[in-house]
Write a protein that binds this DNA or RNA. Structure first.
Lengths: 206, 206, 206, 206
DNA sequence: AATGAATGAGCTTTCATTCAT
DNA sequence: GATGAATGAAAGCTCATTCAT
């Protein structure tokens, strides 16, 4: 049987949180495949038995961490949207959103990249990501639709997906390439590329 | 001792190639982590002993496969460039290049995605990818520089990286999302986005 | 410290009984090895802590359950013996006793079979069974001695053991083979075999 | 993948045999559940890796050992039947067969008893046993049918099963009870019981 | 008296790699 | 040159039992 424990007591909640935290740090640091359960519990300061009373197996832990992290990502990116002029998007609005994405991803870009890759071989991981991607793409599309009148776009759904991909992969690269190229330069050009999908006077030429 | 053999005889070269081919197919089909060496040699029809006289270890094999594949990718993408009007790039030229990228990736997108993810935890894999990325980015940048006069770009290096990322990640998504969204729609919007970095008459609005 | 509690209060007795009942059901249903302590306490609706205040360990529980069950078995088999013509045993008397054995075993034949097997590797289990076997064999022997005058038997002790074995193993088989062969056919032939140890007129030939 | 190796070379065959032998001894000595794979390979003097190249898993090993052992059992019991007067069975013929059963079982009665018990919880084990039981019961039934004219039996199929059970369980008991009661006494009474299923002159009374 | 969080020894199994033949 | 038997570290996970609350 071995029912997975749902923590109720204070101590219990602490333990579960400690496992999640330790795992997240190790995953980000040494990679998911490079981290075993013994290491996780050692870092968390709990026993292997505890691990398996809170998580059915290692993958359940990963899914839970990923789910949480993608939730945080989503909220970080889209929370302060009141400052954005939704239907009169300018270059700064776009940069603002992209910078939010960077903020959201910068905690553990390696972790995100690795889980992202696991989508190809793991249906459960993929499901978590699909849910998240749909939310993000829907938001982007909403912005595009609101600026339809001045858009050089014929297929907003495809465009939203393309934009989402571009931003996501630029974040990965920026965080990864590190000092080789300045993050701001990438952000600027990314924002520029997206902004140029909008019609605007040629004086805009940067 | 047990030096790794550098095959000179015809038969040896054949054997090595058979191993590489078998491994590549299995990696593409079942994933890198899901394929063990026994399976590779079984499919290649050689012994495990042979494997280790041609490859120092499994990673060496992976690096060699990856290196080959990225070479093929590069050539596929950039080979027929004489048909492209280098310094008067139009939408079709861009689509042509993107379609080449799709062709190059479609043999084993999963393999590429997985190795791509390994960059984050494996310096050797990353080195192979960096070499490749530099070549690709250089090419893109060359095109950008040749169209500088009509570019809405101030930082061609950053722009080249951003474009490279966007294309790469859209390929992954297209190959992965499968029938959910038509590949051509993504290609069109991606080409559109890149094309709009160029100045052109407003009649262009698609 | 952690002495095992001897329940005196009403509630305590109830708790202990609930544990025994839950364990017995699970053992019968999923096998002894397939049942863990978490499942037992979950089914009993008590905590694992309670379990270990009533039972020194899992084996103690098993011994207690087994002891109880063998007691019930014994009583079921031999209770209604007043209807049996002790010293003029006929085929029906024998069938009557065998049917009682079947009744006694049918609650949990799997449980009995499994504990029976544990005799070979566990001295404590064996001890419980030996006590029981001796009681049963003594009873059988008593019947044999009472019919000595018409017995084709020279060694009543050995005969009693043989009969006991035969009955026990036929029960196991009957309960186990299930619908493949009708239980009554086995009972009839078993009774027949035992009955033929008695001298009787040849008109008896069934 | 991990295909199970089919031994071809001499060394390979030796290794597999050594594993089987070691496992069999430990199973007989410490019980099946009480023996782990590390112990088996230690006793066999091979590595754990070898174990799992010859056997898919621990259960496969058990099934193989059981299958072999039941084969040997069958042959031992029924091989010298030319000395038996098939259709004029007398007490000695019956004793002869029973003694063969004892010989066959005496190598590892504990092992047989334990696997026998596993039939109740493991369908694969049961399948091996069913095959064997059918062979044995068929043989017994063949003898019964050949002596039909003088049989006090109306249902030879059921009788064959009952006899098979009786003999099997008496062997277990005999081997297990050890010095407490002499084996020959049990054999005699068992033979007697079976013999009395046959009609014969009352001077037979032993 | 009761709880259930925590423990950790111990289990089965995998797989890259070595090396005697 | 080639083979494949053998290796063993290391992984994920279970479960009886303890003990602080």
């Amino acid at each position: 049987m071995s029912l997975v424990r749902t923590p109720k007591q204070q101590r219990s909640i602490q333990t579960k949180k400690r496992i999640i935290k330790a795992a997240f740090h190790l995953y980000a640091q040494k990679g998911i495949h490079g981290t075993n359960s013994k290491e996780i519990v050692a870092k968390a300061g709990v026993s292997i038995g505890s691990f398996y009373s809170y998580f059915k197996n290692k993958k359940t832990l990963l899914l839970e961490i990923l789910d949480d992290y993608l939730d945080r990502t989503y909220l970080t990116v889209w929370k302060d949207m009141e400052s954005v002029t939704i239907n009169e998007l300018d270059r700064n609005d776009i940069k603002f959103i992209i910078e939010n994405v960077f903020k959201a991803y910068e905690i553990a870009p390696t972790f995100l990249m690795q889980t992202h890759a696991l989508r190809y071989s793991d249906a459960d991981i993929n499901r978590v990501y699909e849910r998240e991607r749909n939310r993000e793409v829907t938001q982007i599309r909403y912005l595009l639709e609101n600026n339809k009148h001045r858009m050089r776009i014929s297929d907003p759904e495809a465009a939203a997906i393309v934009i989402h991909n571009a931003v996501e992969s630029v974040v990965h690269t920026a965080k990864f390439l590190g000092p080789k190229i300045d993050e701001m330069r990438l952000i600027n050009e990314l924002a520029n590329m997206i902004y140029n999908l909008l019609l605007h006077g040629s004086q805009d030429k940067k």
